[in-house]
Design a binder for these strands. Sequence first.
DNA 1: CTTGCCGGGGA
DNA 2: TCCCCGGCAAG
Length: 352
Amino acid sequence: MYLKRKRLLTQHHPEKKSSEELDMDKVTAAMVLTSLSTSPLVRSPPVRPNESLNGSWKEGGFVPSSTSSSGYWSWNAPSDQSNPSTPSPPLSADSFKTFRTPSQPDDGIDEGETSNLLFDEPIPRKRKNSMKVMFKCLWKNCGKVLSTAAGIQKHIRTIHLGRIGESDYSDGEEDFYYTEIRLNTDSVADGLSSLSPVSPSLASPPSFPTQDAIRPETSCAKTETKLMTPLSRSAPTNLYLVHTDHAYQATPPVNIPGSAKFTPNGSSFSISWQSPPVTFTGIPVSPTHNRPAGSGEQKQSHTVLSSPPRVAFGLRKPRGEGKKCRKVYGMENRDMWCTACRWKKACQRFID
DNA sequence: CTTGCCGGGGA
DNA sequence: TCCCCGGCAAG
């Protein structure tokens, strides 16, 4: 005799909402990373087996204030761009830009399956075939768009960095100043007008750019190497870096030791995990980070290493096969359910 | 959309 | 503890 049953059939119909927002971030973060790590041109993650992450945090605990302004961590460029367009999932990363309007009830975005947070390294990743890659200069009032990375780099080097002599030598710093954008052949996302995140990095954990760290050559990817050069001079207005940290945890056995560090002069922040080959899935914790933003610009880079793939052991119980009380008795007979089921716990009656 | 159930609470 | 429920992954 249960007197309780306050709401018998009241199916819960929560107004899920915030989740979307969260998803968004997750997705976008994922995208960013994805693009970073798979980006065709620069960036080859040679030695770094793992880099990836995904963002999203749970519990809207933090929510960046409505004014995204000071948020140093969002991708949106502080200066221009204005329309928060919704990124459509299938497109890849670049078309996103600013959607980061927490205060708004945005509903446009619903995501079917949010891409999973794990991008393994060499996954082929399906990409729209009809995409054209362009490179846009992010330098303050420039916005030049070129079709080749080399071109844009040269442009930056000569025009903005004033390195004329060494035209062919690139230390990679230019990377910070341009961004890759993909244009869909038909629906050209207004990618140009909005910037997309630069893809600075996947930093290698160990190296921090303190200062003049100029890496010597760097065969393939200037990418990770330079990752943090002290952005000399006035960096282009926006260097928004995606920055997300999460604390993931592998289910059972391992937990990842992480480390974060900040460089006082506000120049960088990074986190890195040195994890064993494990997989995690996770629950991100909160990606936010704002700093007072003093006067200069600052850059942060996120470095998150983790190992990619596969669902491993722990995550979540497979999910029992058989029908459980709920299914068997139905909502209307909730009192016939085993307690576990009633409490939304793992069924004890029909164990698999 | 529906299920199973984890992770968090509140009482 | 007992009991609920948000939320999420899986289907």
